Simulated scan of single mutants.
Amino acid sequence: MPSSASAAHSGPLPLLDNEVLRTFVAIAERGSFTRAARQVSRTPSALSMQIKQLEETLGHKLFVREARQVRLTPEGEVLLGYARRLLKLNEEAVTRFLAPPVEGTVRFGTPDDQGSRILPEVLAQFARTHPAVQVDVVVGGSVEMQRQLEAGELDLILMTAGTPGQTADQGEVVHSEPLVWAGRDGGVAAWRSPLPVALASQGWPWRGRALAALDHAGIAYHIAYTSEHWAGQEAAMLADIAVAPFPVSLVKLPLRQVPREVGLPDLGDYHVVLVRREGAGEASEALAGQVIRAFREQRP
């Protein structure tokens, strides 16, 4: 049975143009017609005309124009999800048929927090666009993966910026977000003194940053829980035996950010970098591009 929208529309439904969708996504991500125009190499007035035609086609206003920026309407937010999926599907189809075949094996290292965030989607899409490439995944700590990369045992790794031994120019920043103090919602660990903290093992950047911040703020603490993986820190928080420094995107109920009135120090942002082994090959570069796009598409 046809939907009310399709029934009300006489004749075939209009098709959405990929170039217009690309323009729409660029404006949504940049929050500005001017910044988006620079990205797509067109004038702001040309972009404005495209969006006007798109709004007329769909019968809905997509952006609210403000003094210094534009923001999506509720209908625009819905379209953004569709637009990203349509552009991705178009890219997959074109790559599958027109790109030269890429073969080989890529050895990819990722920490467990980033692996759980993007890995399933990345591997599924990469398998569709590069069926002749085998991807071997290693999940581990940044320090060990860096050693394996330098030894030629891995081709591509994700790691946290600031890992001991990492040079300043090593890797490309692909993701940034606030690092916050987190604990169990309604828990009491954050109010205890000395403060019980759950930390990663020695050498993880979060550990040094958290301890330095507590020392600088003069807050008494003790390390109540140590784990190689973020899941261990999460378990300690869920049991309400400790609080922990955690990426804000991973703080989900029954966890919550520690209330500001507790007075814990700010931890700033943390950055994820993608590091390539020199000469790793075409297959590795193809997967690197897929990883970068996956992080970019997570941005609001």
Score class of each variant (00 low, 15 high):
V139E: 10
G104F: 06
A212L: 06
K61Y: 03
S6C: 01
A99E: 03
F97G: 01
F126H: 13
M159A: 11
T73M: 08
P300D: 05
P194D: 07
V135H: 04
P74H: 00
Q290M: 02
E19Y: 03
R209N: 10
D269S: 08
A36M: 07
G203E: 12
E172P: 04
F97S: 10
A244W: 04
D185P: 00
P178F: 13
E29H: 07
G11M: 12
R22Q: 14
A151V: 06
D240H: 04
H222G: 00
I223L: 01
R38C: 08
K61P: 00
S41K: 14
E56P: 00
V248Q: 15
P100V: 08
V262L: 06
V258E: 07
A83I: 05
A294C: 05
S3V: 00
P245Q: 12
Q53R: 13
D266V: 03
R260A: 15
G140S: 11
V40G: 05
G187E: 05
I292E: 11
T105R: 15
L154K: 10
Q114Y: 06
R296Q: 15
H9A: 14
T226A: 12
A8F: 10
E19M: 02
P300W: 06
Q166D: 04
L72N: 01
I241M: 10
S45I: 13
Q166W: 01
E297K: 07
T160W: 13
A198P: 04
Q114A: 12
A217W: 06
A161P: 00
A210P: 06
V122F: 03
E228Q: 10
